[in-house]
Nucleic acid binder design. Structure first.
Lengths: 243, 243
DNA sequence: TAGTGGTCTAGACCACTAG
DNA sequence: TAGTGGTCTAGACCACTAG
């Protein structure tokens, strides 16, 4: 690290910020001063500042200077997908039904459908070891007549991940997680008793190359197998980057 | 955007990636080629590539070239803090007890304590409108004799956020969220019935300027008021940056 | 050996800030 | 007007890759 000039600058400033010698809102030395202090050219100093900026440590105000960011400490990240986001391994799944149907008002709204449009609804049950039912997944997607979607639905049950990864740069996903009371249908499938709580995870998938929501999934999980491990990430209240 | 050369390059390449014309793993034009295509100097091209890299679109392999990233699509981010991470407003809280105690084995391990070390345990109840009990919070921290920590504990009940923000750059927080059965004590405080489910959020706070866990919080929430809204973020399986 | 990315400099011109 | 950061260039030297 000591070899590369701009990295020396980066770790020096980072250390000052982490130790609290430079506090959120404080102004850094000017680029000219940093050039002297580190015997560096301007572009080298700027490369270091750029790194600090992209890592969320500092931001810059043209004409004024570079400042220490005011980060938020309540943003967390976690990994979730249906197959290894739970605290039990999913060994297999069983397709319960695939139908073409009229959407209810809620689903219709979410998928941005016109009146008369149909959807494909696909229900699957996920099982852990020894055939323990873990979760029920209901997938809703717009039905486009003429397109052989059914096959795709059945396929992506297995192969969704590589497909999603290929389109990752245009995909947006949102999750909403709530704890609700079960209904009878889910109760039966998951072998839960009436009145038991259940974790309901609603997932919407959008594709910026196509308008509207591409897919809506309601994922009902036995709370026993639900867990989230999340870690804080640094994010800033002030927008501003140096490049 | 069209004014700044490197931003033109950035949006051009970003568009190709988002439309799928450039796929994960694909190699970009070489820097020399991009210089020609955009009539730009090398440092300008590199500034653009640097931005694309820091935004998670591309990575570079010295001697070979720049490549489109292979992102993960199952990393989500959400905001959580005790006071507005729930689907109900916390109007006030009541301190139930503050004691200095011998830690149990679990707490002792988490806080990295020696035998004989004591902890401060602080129990609070959080209320929504009309005095609805929403959550019980148990805070465990190492007790350092001679330091007037009790005051701090009582203070940070109110003022934790600004303090945390000040030290944000050295703080690390982790959450673990599970659904469990309530115990009698929590049941009584939250007015839940026996056998009801409860959301248990365990939070550990570390400070890189101090060794070990600084604080451990167990947050027991009435599932009714628990909700998480999370959004996918782009992260890469390949580590590599351009600066 | 030719090509590729990584580091670094000196210098130019610009817009914005603040006294 | 002096200082600050933003954009951009031309050029130098380096290590790594791959034929």
């Amino acid at each position: 690290m000591g070899d590369v000039l701009y990295l020396t600058l980066v770790s020096s400033i980072k250390e000052q910020i982490e130790k609290g010698e430079l506090k959120p809102g404080d102004i850094l030395d000017s680029e000219a001063t940093l050039m002297e202090k580190f015997s560096a050219g301007r572009m080298t100093v700027r490369k270091g500042l750029s790194l600090l900026s992209s890592e969320g440590y500092i931001y810059s105000v043209p004409g004024k200077g570079n400042f220490v960011c005011k980060p938020q400490v309540d943003i967390f990240r976690f990994k979730f997908n249906k197959y290894d986001g739970l605290n039990i391994n999913i060994d297999n799944f069983r397709l319960l039904s695939v139908i073409i149907a009229h959407p209810g008002l809620e689903i219709s709204k979410i998928l941005g459908l016109q009146e008369g449009d149909n959807i494909i609804e696909c229900i699957r049950c996920l099982y852990g070891p020894n055939e323990i039912p873990v979760a029920v997944e209901r997938i809703f997607l717009p039905y486009e007549p003429g397109q052989p979607v059914l096959e795709d639905v059945l396929k992506y049950a297995d192969y969704m991940e590589p497909i999603e990864r290929q389109y990752a740069f245009s995909i947006e996903k949102s999750l909403e997680i709530n704890i609700i009371s079960t209904n009878e249908y889910i109760n039966n499938l998951l072998k839960l008793k009436e009145g038991n709580a259940i974790v309901e995870i609603k997932e919407t998938i959008m594709d910026s190359n196509v308008s509207g929501v591409r897919q809506y999934v309601i994922f009902s999980v036995n709370p026993r197998y639900f867990t989230i491990k999340a870690h804080m990430i640094l994010e800033n209240t002030i927008i501003g980057k140096i490049y």
